[in-house]
Amino acid sequence: MRTITLSVNGEDLTVTVEPRESLADVLRERLDLTGTHLGCEHGVCGACTIEVDGKATRACLILAVMAEGRRITTIEGLRDDPVAAVLRRHFHEQHALQCGFCTPGMLIMARDLLNRSTPSSEKDVREGLAGQMCRCTGYAGIVRAVLAAADETTSTRSPTP
């Protein structure tokens, strides 16, 4: 076991972990941040997607000890994020979620997509979200929501840092 300090959603949290523990498990089990969901634990489904140093990252494919000293943002840390807020509204209006299990990872990836570029076509959005599985919606509402959010945020988004 080792004690590490993780910067999570702007707060430094000290936690004792085994080196083998994934960041996803530590966020969920030790820090009670359960908005990061686990759908496959091998990097394919995208449900656990979070941000590490501003980059979308599979929380199941990074050890907590690797994340020490890096800036971690989970869905819980995006309550007041303006781009996430726009996405949330459009997800709601476009019926872009059903069971809700994929939703946190989907939102984080969609936000990442918007922050990096302006997806102008449906194809861009679909490829950008290809690593985020949704088993309920068939993606149509999600794609509509992201395109609508892209439209709305084009003028307000800050360029990639």
């Binding site: 590490v52 599979r58 990836m109 990442d112």
Partner: peptide, 9 residues
Amino acid sequence: LAYRAVRNQ
């Protein structure tokens, strides 16, 4: 190659 979240790491 794979997905963006994988490509980032």
